[in-house]
Amino acid sequence: MSEGEQVKKGKGTVFVQTEVCKGCSYCIDFCPAHCLEFSRDFNRKGYHYPVLGRPEDCTGCDLCGLYCPDFAIFGVRFKDLEKRKQPAPEPLIPARG
């Protein structure tokens, strides 16, 4: 995981696994808030991955996560993150037995 935003802006943020991204730009073109853009650098395979260009616009709706064919990006809302901070951390999906 990387690309966690340093400063809290907007209502949410995205996390990108840069190494599995193939640069298809689905997330960038179909972000409802138009807050993603291509990075200047590229990953080990030579693809430009998405970065949060306008973090103040991100709502953490996770539509990028739904579009991503490579399971490389997902969005979270800050309020969901806050909820998880207080009690013992619980994974979003219960671990499978």
């Binding site: 995981m1 996390f15 696994q17 996770d62 996560g65 399971f71 997902f74 979270v76 993150l81 998880r84 901070k85 951390p89 994974p91 979003l92 999906i93 671990a95 499978r96």
Partner: peptide
């Protein structure tokens, strides 16, 4: 890392 965030489809 503390929050153990992972992609919701990872599991």
């Amino acid at each position: 890392l503390e929050l153990e965030i992972e992609n919701p489809v990872a599991s």
